[in-house]
Simulated assay, not measured.
Amino acid sequence: MNPPQELPRSIQSSWYVFMKSFSELRPDLYRYCRHLTRSPWDAEDLAQDALARAFVTLGQMMGEAPPNPRAWLFRVASNLWIDRVRRERRERPLEGDVSSASSAIDPRGAREAAGTLLGQLSPQERAAVVLKDVFDLTLEETAETLSTTVGAVKTALHRARGKLVERAAEEVSAPAPAVLDAFCAAFNAGDIDGLAKLLLDTVSVEVVGATTQYGPEAAKRTVLFGMLFGVERLADGDPTTGMDARFIQGILAIPPRVEARAYRGGWVLLHWYTHRDGEAVRALTRIDVDDDRVAHLQNYFFTPDMIAEICSELGLPSRSNGYSWCVPKA
């Protein structure tokens, strides 16, 4: 049975209202997830998953909004993260160190292992430290957020504070994959067909938090086209982009350029946009490679907190696009 045609429109409208209502909490949510995961990429993934779970949960709360929305979002993110860590630990091989085990779970694990303390802290310990010491929640609020007791929080804090020793970030030891150079060359030439040829037939191409397309043709029609030529709509102030006008002031209708930069043991593509007062990074892209072709592409455009953090680490100027990616149809 096919769903009613008005269902997708209704869901999109509800999601838009939800995101608009919780937009002020997005920076804190990202920052909380960042402290938990110790990785900007994993933090954005966790924040997106937490928002999706919160959206579904809110629809099941019989019209009752949470009394403390920030603490509620933190609880949703905490539960997701604790479950994820427990699951990954169960799946780890019995032998081998933390970094090799992480790599077996996630191909990106080796790049992020140097920035995580999961090997030293239990999930509850890390969450307790972040909530109490970073966000200054009381012991009672921390216990409520973690669905535990004040005594358990005190114990977790005592244990955790003796373990918190950060490790240095990894340096990139290998050159950028050739497909990244080819991607940058095709992108900067405006060659959308050339970009599509770099994609595997089974590729997934994602604008994080907005849409995912499968296969080269679908990606070419939507995501790749938007990455290359969407700046024209921004410069025209097209209201259907969903972006607040303050985010696109001064942007020029000049196609963006991309360049590959080493970052945290891996590679990231920076999307430089031209403004009346100069260039700035407005988006990032990560690419997973399989046999010299693109197997998975993630474009980060509506993720201002992560973009700002990474550009700050790299010493680069950045601009925000906000969080909103659509305006629901009437």
Rank of each mutant, 00 (worst) to 15 (best):
A47L: 13
P69D: 03
R86I: 07
V56C: 01
G59P: 04
P107H: 13
S78K: 03
A52G: 03
R31H: 14
A52K: 08
L121Q: 03
D106F: 13
V85C: 00
L51P: 12
I82P: 04
D83P: 03
A54L: 07
A71F: 00
G119P: 12
R89H: 13
E88R: 08
Y16F: 10
P107S: 03
G96Y: 03
A52D: 14
E112Q: 12
A113L: 03
S13G: 07
S102P: 06
A77R: 05
G115D: 06
A43V: 08
M62I: 06
R84A: 05
T37N: 09
F55P: 00
L46G: 00
A101R: 08
F22V: 09
F55Y: 12
D45P: 01
M62V: 05
D97G: 14
A114C: 07
L58A: 06
S78A: 11
A65F: 02
N68K: 11
S102Q: 08
E24M: 13
I105A: 10
L36S: 07
V76Q: 11
R108L: 11
A50S: 01
K20A: 11
R75C: 15
E88D: 04
D45S: 02
K20Q: 14
Y32D: 07
D42Q: 08
S102I: 09
D106A: 06
W72A: 05
A101D: 15
A52I: 15
L80M: 03
P27H: 10
V76G: 04
I82A: 09
L29G: 04
A114R: 11
G119Q: 14
L121I: 06
R70A: 09
S100T: 10
V98W: 15
L73Q: 02
A50R: 05
R70C: 14
T37A: 07
S103H: 07
A104G: 12
L58C: 12
R86D: 15
W41A: 10
V17R: 11
R38T: 05
T57D: 12
S99K: 10
G119K: 07
S78E: 09
P69H: 02
E91L: 09
P67A: 15
A54E: 00
Y30L: 04
S103R: 15
L121F: 05
A65D: 02
G96Q: 01
S21W: 12
A113S: 14
Q48M: 11
G63A: 06
V17E: 15
P93E: 10
